[in-house]
Design a protein around this nucleic acid. Structure first.
Length: 263
DNA sequence: AAGTGATGCAACCGCACCTTT
DNA sequence: AAAAGGTGCGGTTGCATCACT
């Protein structure tokens, strides 16, 4: 398929929008709707490409756009949804009326990512969960005390293996509050003794993990090694690095010895 | 006051997917 | 069924502003 020439080659304008352009675009869409974005600029008398018009409308001019800083509730939702969906900004934006995917993406990269990183560092510094059991070996031992065993299986979590896209079906807009139910906060009683054998120093490469752990809340359990591997591969399809801790947490709790696939 | 680096945000780009022909 | 065209998404960039020296 032949790609359409870019805006510049067509003699179209790029860069920041002027108030005049905004006004033209806004009044045209209010009067006629946007219809075909590609045809819109010509019809509206704008020297812009349709893509640029669409973006400007969606991210800035739409009447239902919410302006101003994100509330702490909104930030919480973004954090939780990102934990579940990864960098699927449009899906996250769908849960936050008036906010755009672009805005959420920016907020994530400029504020929330750093904040989460800091709090994670703080958490690990203040209460380390893992120590090297032998300074000459790569075996790591988790320190926290055990708690009661959990025997429930994770079959209700199985739709995960169909890929992260199916998350849209799992999470309905009215269920935002219930994200806690899907991914409950982890309290200290959750952790048990575990060992992790590394074949490399980084979690991003293929490792051999040995987990001894008799407990896990249902939402973190896996029925088999294969199911975990399948899920980790699926997750890798989106954003494995961002979610490494997420998988690490799950894995630590899965109570199985498995080989992570090569990524 | 000037220079410089960091930060935030709007906008662009390339790609994938969907729809139409 | 395949090609063409349209749309939406996520990653990235560039610029304005702020903070610091």
């Amino acid at each position: 398929m032949v790609r359409a020439p870019c805006c510049e080659k067509m003699g179209l304008k790029k860069g920041p929008w002027t108030p005049e352009e905004d006004q033209i675009l806004m009044s045209y869409i209010q009067k006629h709707g946007h219809g075909n974005w590609r045809a819109l600029p010509k019809l509206a008398g704008l020297l812009r490409c349709g893509k640029s018009c669409r973006l400007r409308w969606i991210n800035y001019l739409r009447p239902d756009i919410k302006r101003g800083n994100f509330s702490s509730e909104e930030e919480e939702i973004i954090i939780k949804m990102h934990e579940l969906l990864g960098n699927r900004w449009s899906a996250i934006a769908a849960k936050l009326p008036g906010r755009t995917d672009n805005e959420i993406k920016n907020v994530w990269h400029t504020h929330l990512k750093k904040r989460l990183l800091n709090s994670e560092i703080q958490k690990r510094v203040s209460k380390p969960r893992i120590k090297r059991s032998d300074s000459n070996s790569s075996t790591l031992t988790q320190l926290e005390p055990t708690s009661s065993a959990c025997t429930t299986s994770l079959s209700d979590f199985s739709s995960f293996s169909e890929g992260t896209k199916n998350m849209d079906n799992m999470i309905k807009s009215e269920d935002i509050e219930s994200v806690e139910t899907i991914m409950p906060p982890i309290d200290e009683s959750f952790w048990s003794e575990a060992t992790v054998d590394y074949e490399s120093s980084t979690m991003m490469t293929s490792n051999s993990w040995t987990i001894s752990n008799e407990l896990a809340p249902p939402q973190y359990q896996f029925n088999s090694v294969e199911s975990f591997q399948q899920r980790s591969v699926d997750y890798n399809g989106s954003n494995y690095d961002d979610g490494m801790d997420f998988w690490y947490d799950i894995f630590i709790k899965s109570g199985e010895s498995i080989e992570l696939p090569e990524f």
